[in-house]
Amino acid sequence: MEGAMGLLRRIDPKQTDTALSALLSLLPHHSSDLLSQVDQPLQVLRDADTGKEFILCEYNRDADSYRSPWSNKYHPPLDDAPFPSSELRKLEVEANEIFAIYRDQYYEGGISSVYMWEDDNEGFVACFLIKKDGSKTGQGKRGYLQEGAWDAIHVIQVGPEEEGTTRYCLTSTVMLSLTTNNESSGTFNLSGSIRRQMNMYLSVADGHLCNMGKMIEEMEGKLRNSLDQVYFGKTKEMVCTLRPPSEVVMKLPGS
């Protein structure tokens, strides 16, 4: 397992899919470990009832079927499949509605899905997913990207209520890849994957949705910022170490 995780840390994030399926076939006995520890690029399916797309992940899967947050039905249909309690389903429906508005304000497009389920210690778990195709053939409004993918996975464990407060434990992963391509500068691709955690004790008076939403918004902002400033910045720094830009040779005659 350690070796497998090491390999995934080195392979280009845009090849995670290939790497993961290779590791799954090499290590069939560790498949559940791998699938729970490694975030995969998100897949999408269309809900047969509502016509709306929803996101597939380990948390809405049972056997080979996936539950849609819109119709609450499994695709393809499945007998004896688990469902959240009606109370939790109510929160799930509300979360999907609000999160779609949040998603639209930040992503100007994309797909989102929220799934919830009861866990063993009197609390529940919620998983917020966003997928955006920012390419110019997808939903890239500005049309700069030949290819552009953003997958965000937020899993929040919500503990039982104690004296009016609850512990929220958020684990977030962002996977992205962006490519620009043009005659004069060739192909330029940056891809990445980072995962962070955040724990908070918050008053339940504001409601779970409000608390979870604020945490996710803060986390997404931080992840986006560190990708942009730190991670991309480090690769740029590397390029400039390999070949420092020199003002002297910048302007050659005839350039």
């Binding site: 955006k132 700069y144 990207l145 992205l176 991309f232």
Partner: peptide
């Protein structure tokens, strides 16, 4: 030299144009 300059340009375009098409700040 030109190529290095275009790499730098790709980087400086990131925050306000290219990255924005994935997620806004």
């Amino acid at each position: 030299t030109e190529y290095l300059a275009s790499l730098e340009a790709s980087y400086s375009n990131l925050p306000d144009t290219t990255f924005k098409d994935l997620r806004r700040k």
